[in-house]
Write a protein that binds this DNA or RNA. Structure first.
Length: 537
RNA sequence: GCGCCCAUCGUCUAGAGGCCUAGGACGUCGCCCUUUCACGGCGAAAACACGGGUUCGAUUCCCGUUGGGCGCGCCA
């Protein structure tokens, strides 16, 4: 399956009314994109030129972007970034961000994939304008355009068989030419059409010269026309190809700016010929590099080509994922963190890099940790509770959550979040609140509870039990006092205490743990680890 | 094979001919803080792929090499 581009697509009949009848009024969005520094210096939207009044009047809709995934799988990370960039660009310019599902391939499209994509978009916070456009529903329109091209002599019927096509490719390859259709039906008379063979419709593309693409990210890219063949617009069964559908849908939806994976760069050259044949104004282009795996190769499942639902399950926050994705291939000086409002304000096409970036889970995690700690306790608790159904082990926690547990979680949140990079780690760290007595001890905690350590706890227990007021402050005073009288360091007493109360060697501040657990539970957990019970065990 | 794109620390990146003794972030290592682990603070190691040009001067411009990526369907 294809990677990040997140592509192209097609659309139904419920298009946006914005669609101009022809692209003529989109002039301000086409511009030359000089390469390199030149290109970076050039302000992108500064048309500077003649802006027709009509355009100004329709200002809010002058920018229309779209995300057009094909529903053959989940919404993967590359697609998510493409969607994010389109979303940001639309927001930045007060435009529209449309969603189109490219489901022309009936064999491979599934409802499950569509649901996963919509769900992923919502989770990421990438809301789209208007209704989702389903490309398949627009097939009649695509056919109509193909017929029109035929009528205008811009396209022709081709009766070549699959076998002939295969031979052509082999020959071309053998001769060191790009494998492509040789145009054998381009100028043949319709009378020569063989009986009983349903033809495809191919576009007549120029055979000489070159095709120039002006791309906001790639700059000026030139393709020799000899490498662009007369590609298929309409299949023999009357279904449109991707190439035709994208162009027609983008046009009808009024898309002004295409932002997609650079795996579509060569398609841009083909599509340009369709626009020209139709006399339509083509949208401005921006082809962004794909995301690579940690080893520089294609993103694989093991790497990160997971559905965004997997990122949710791993405990990442949408805000952190958005920030990380933004910084992958786009930068503004040294700045690392951008709130949603800030990224909308700062986003631009000129700062997108041309080189592909590798996906780094470790950095994502670090960033997620920052977002976690920056979220205030109450909000984080709410987020955590809402995420429980999706997190590993979250269901079990959810089942045990009663009002008391919730209050304890809330109280522990600040200590917990400082130690967590993901919601999963937050859940893990909160484990001691949900553990049942007698607590299971992990290996390190068990090793800490030596006979001597247990004696220390035994000395401590009655003093804690005698406390009139049970709080972090009062328990701390007692523990410090006992440590002093025993002639040991505070840690010598605090660590066994932590082991006894949490079963771990790591936890929030131990006096906070004492306070949150409460007198009864704390003393009971301590009693479980008293010397006598240790012997019994 | 043909076409197109790319190339600064391990990774994400700053850099727009002299400001570079190449900066920041993640990661790594060390120190500090400290009841643990984190957080936080301080510090260290760590890069301009290679070769030719152009220039008084190249990380920055040009060419080539090497390496990587993408495309070449009646898939999208």
């Amino acid at each position: 399956m294809r990677q990040p581009s997140g592509g192209e697509s097609c659309a139904p009949s419920c298009i946006h009314p914005i669609a101009p009848d022809d692209g003529a009024c989109r002039a301000p969005f086409s511009r030359a994109a000089p390469r390199d520094k030149e290109r970076r210096r050039a302000s992108h939207e500064a048309p500077g030129q003649i802006v027709p009044t009509t355009v100004l009047e329709r200002m809010p809709k002058d920018v229309v972007t779209r995300f057009a995934p094909s529903p053959t799988g989940f919404l993967h990370i590359g697609g998510a970034r493409t969607a994010l960039f389109n979303w940001l660009y639309a927001k930045r310019h007060g435009g529209l961000f449309l969603l189109r599902i490219e489901d022309t391939d009936r064999e491979r499209s599934t409802q499950g994939a569509i649901d996963a994509i919509l769900d992923g978009m919502r989770w990421l916070g990438l809301d789209w304008d208007g209704d989702v456009t389903y490309q398949f529903s627009r097939a009649p329109r695509h056919r109509e355009i193909a017929e029109e091209l035929l009528a205008r002599g811009k396209a022709y019927r081709c009766y070549a068989s699959a076998q002939e096509l295969e031979e052509m490719r082999e020959t071309a390859r053998a001769e060191g030419r790009p494998p492509r259709y040789d145009g054998r039906w381009r100028d043949r008379s319709p009378e020569e059409a063989p009986e009983g063979i349903a033809p495809v419709i191919r576009l007549k593309t120029p055979q000489e010269g070159e095709t120039v693409i002006e791309d906001a990210v790639q700059g000026r890219v030139v393709f020799p026309n000899k490498d662009i063949d007369d590609f298929v617009l309409l299949r023999s069964d009357g279904a449109p190809t991707y190439m035709l559908a994208v162009v027609v849908d983008d046009h009808d939806m009024g898309v002004t700016q295409i932002i997609r994976g650079d795996d579509h760069l060569t398609n841009a050259a083909r599509q340009k010929h369709i626009y020209e044949a139709l006399g339509w104004q083509a949208p401005a282009l921006a082809h962004i590099p794909l995301i690579h795996g940690p080893d520089g190769a294609k993103l694989s499942k093991r790497h990160g080509a997971l559905g965004v639902d997997a990122y949710r399950a791993m405990g990442y926050l949408p805000s952190a994922l958005r920030n990380y994705l933004l910084r992958l291939g786009w930068s503004q000086g040294d700045r690392e963190f951008f709130s949603t409002a800030e990224m909308i304000e700062a986003f631009d096409l000129d700062s997108i890099h041309r080189s592909p970036a590798r996906f780094d889970f470790v950095k994502l995690e670090n960033m997620n940790g920052h977002y976690l700690r920056d979220t205030d306790d109450a909000d984080l608790l709410a987020t955590l509770l809402a995420s429980l159904p999706y997190l590993e082990g979250g269901q079990a926690i959810a089942r045990k959550l009663d009002e008391r547990r919730k209050a304890q979680l809330a109280a522990a949140m600040s200590g917990l979040k400082a130690r967590a990079k993901t919601l999963n780690e937050l859940v893990d760290g909160a484990g001691f609140l949900f553990a049942e007595r007698p607590l299971p001890l992990d290996a390190k905690a068990a090793a800490l509870l030596t006979p001597k350590a247990r004696e220390g706890l035994a000395a401590l227990t009655p003093r804690l039990a005698a406390l009139e007021e049970w709080s972090a402050a009062t328990t701390e005073a007692v523990v410090r006092e006992i440590a002093a009288s025993l002639g040991v360091k505070l840690g010598d007493l605090a660590q066994p205490l932590r082991a006894a109360l949490t079963g771990r060697t790591t936890s929030p501040g131990i006096f906070d743990v004492l306070a949150i657990l409460g007198r009864e539970e704390s003393l009971a957990r301590l009693a479980d680890q008293a010397p006598s019970s240790a012997q019994r065990a």
